[in-house]
Design a protein around this nucleic acid. Sequence first.
RNA 1: GUCCCCAUCGUCUAGCCCGGUCUAGGACAUCAGAUUUUCAUUCUGAUGACACCGGUUCAAAUCCGGUUGGGGACGCCA
Length: 426
Amino acid sequence: MVRVRLAPSPTGYLHIGSARTALFNWLYARRYKGKLLLRIEDTDRVRSEERFLNEIITDLKWLGIDWEGEPIYQSKRFDVYRDAAEGLIKQGRAYREGEAYIFKVEKARVIEVDDMIHGKVVFNTNEIKDQVMIKSDGSPTYNFSCVIDDAHLLITHIIRGDDHLSNTPKQILFYEALGLEAPQFGHMPLIMGMDGAKLSKRHGGVSVEEYRREGFLPEALVNYLLLLGWSPGSDREIIPIEEAEKVFDINNMKGVQAKFDIAKLRWMNGEYIAAKPDKELLPLIKKQMSDAAGICRIPDDKLLEVVKLYKVRMKTLSEFVRMTDHFFTDDYSMEEKAAQKYLTSAESKNILHEFSARLEKLRDFSHSAIEETCRLMAEEKKLKAANVIHPTRVAISGKAAGAGLFEMMEVLGKSKVLERMRKAAA
RNA sequence: GUCCCCAUCGUCUAGCCCGGUCUAGGACAUCAGAUUUUCAUUCUGAUGACACCGGUUCAAAUCCGGUUGGGGACGCCA
């Protein structure tokens, strides 16, 4: 039975790389009908904070990653680590230096790791110094507590980042000394920023929380992360998690570090947004609106109409707020360049004046009726429809781009449309 | 510095394990055209890669060695 684990340290927010590690562990457990356990590595009492733990758990759940049972906390197991260290001292395999317990590393031994992703990796213990197990302050070191707890939890496979590859021989030494069986290891290459350097804020965000706030859908982020280092072996790009858990194979994982490309993530997010049913999108948009404005007073049916118009063109939920402000307030932003180009000339003002006069007579303010009016006017005035469309768009929305003009006008409503057109024509 | 991992279009990748079907396929991005008499969507097309050197072989993106480049680790951090 496969047993894998997540071992976050609550000393910061959930990093995008940790999220990927969590995802692959979850996938592995799902694929082989095993269990995923959660262990909180809070041995550093100074840096560990409850708010970080809560945030990490929130983010994992948001991503759709769930685990078996209650998490275990390393901070509650200091006695276990100390007992194990004492045992090694009694056996003569460790010594004390002040309050610290230190493990003697046998020299000139070859340690082989049969890594699930990299294959056979060989280390020589000459490269490894004696290892601290228990620090002077009584807390265990990472490598020591990690081994003891993984054994305690009966972990069969450890899937983690490449930064732990060189910890592996040290841990294997502990497994041996403690008379425990080592699990299988799989080390995934790290995610880098587009410039090849460590992922940081300037690459678009390092924590899952930032992406959530920006309006990325968890399913899109998961899909994107899935494709970073793994591929189904075909040309598929959009792979929902339910499908991934059926076809996931760790043998298809590459040992190559990947660069985090926010442009592709944005594309993927747009795909997921466009495919999402309006009813499911609505609450997410409302949340985004209230996060931006403090409160969202817009009635559902009105919001829904606008969502329908914009769901194919937003890449993130937060973009929606910026793109649609003219539907919800008269104090909407005005693009300078667009206003300059389409609203300043006498000709534009005349067109707006004429068009608004014709629209006023419409009893049926539907997009098809508006369009008909627009085309008829263009024909009679020997204008291109675009000459009417552009100024009108800018006049009523303040933007050069947006949803289809006539649909937009219908949703905005006759009185608002006329009011704004007249104001611009004046 | 020492040890370890890695190397296909700008990016993510397929192919590599089991050499020939690869004049290297797809996606994102970019550019161009069509459609939308608007932006987006959609469609079509274009640009664009096997890091380098050597070896093995009739044949190498695929196997081997080296070089270069990138990354990671060398903490009483995790």
